[in-house]
């Protein structure tokens, strides 16, 4: 379990990183936390000739508040999200989810940019990004552009990233004060990917759901926004029948793979359960 040989680059600026990646082409991979890429390299399932380490690019770091938007640099680690007062205040669901990613050591290295950009359907952050209506800022040889999280994921490990492009930051509109949120993740043990997980952000008005978004993790080759399920609960007080209806609507769009976490019918079933539990917990938190 030894990685194949590669050349190592450590650019100090975003421009240099983008230029390196453009010049080196398909043989190069950006290196963020490395906790997905390095194990793949050890198995020689990934054999990049060049690694472009992004750790020295200051522009990719930090959590900033601009008006009603939080901008998170791609190289912000899960650990930094967990200790950020800004995130605790404005986007607590990110902390709830980050605490369920991998394990403490991995969270010191693993970055939000890597988590959302590598297109692994098992990653937790993408579904949250869709639920929160995040936009991803991409930088490449053709300049900079923004892509909505909801438009970003095209298939397992296939995203809107063009060759040579990297994700530089994530902008997330701050949900209204008093919003309810929950990330329900069923996993076999610490360090595992979700057997099924659901992210919910909602607002309540007069005891009824006013707005709602539901995201699903590891239940399809891409993260999913369960729009029909969300629509089914809006205007309701989340009675038992409505919850079941939402779960059914969510299950209708799930297409997980059978794996050691369980057969398809189980993963879909618990996907529905996660949706119901996330809705209930989110509603309980909303004020």
């Amino acid at each position: 379990m030894i990685p194949g040989p590669f050349s190592y680059h450590r650019p100090a600026s975003l421009a240099d990183a983008v230029k390196l990646l453009a010049d080196l082409g398909d043989d190069a991979r950006p290196l963020a936390g490395g906790h997905s890429l390095v194990p793949m390299m050890k198995l020689r399932l990934a054999t990049p000739a060049h690694l472009v380490d992004l750790h020295d690019v200051a522009d990719l770091k930090g959590i900033r508040h601009y008006g009603s938007t939080i901008v998170i640099g791609a190289m912000t680690t899960q650990h930094e999200l967990l200790v950020s007062g800004e995130i605790r205040q404005s986007l607590p669901i990110l902390q709830e989810a980050a605490a369920l990613i991998a394990d403490p050591q991995v969270r010191y290295r693993g970055t939000i940019g890597g988590n959302v950009a590598n297109g692994d359907p098992g990653n937790d952050m993408p579904a949250l990004m869709m639920v929160l209506g995040a936009n991803f800022r991409l930088s490449g040889p053709g300049g900079e552009r923004e892509v909505a999280a909801s438009e970003f994921y095209q298939g397992a490990y296939f995203t809107a990233l063009e060759p040579g492009e990297i994700l530089t930051s994530i902008s997330i509109p701050v949900p209204p004060a008093g919003h309810g949120y929950a990330y329900e993740k069923l996993k076999r043990k610490v360090g595992d990917y979700a057997t099924a997980a659901a992210a919910v952000v909602l607002t309540m008005a007069g005891g009824k759901v006013a707005t709602c978004a539901i995201g699903l993790t590891n239940l399809h080759e891409t993260p999913l926004l369960a729009t029909d399920a969300a629509n089914a609960v809006i205007g309701t007080s989340l009675d038992a029948a409505t919850l079941k209806q939402a779960a059914a609507a969510a299950e209708a769009i799930m297409a997980p793979a059978a794996d050691t976490r369980g057969p398809v019918e189980y993963r879909k079933h618990v996907g529905g359960i996660m949706v119901m539990r996330a809705l209930q917990r989110a509603a309980g938190r909303a004020v």
């Binding site: 190592y8 450590r10 906790h35 390095v38 194990p39 050591q105």
Partner: peptide, 13 residues
């Protein structure tokens, strides 16, 4: 100041 798993970090890093 971070706990890291040194099997998943390159020495050059």
């Amino acid at each position: 100041g971070m706990s890291v798993k040194s099997c998943t970090v390159f020495a050059v890093q």
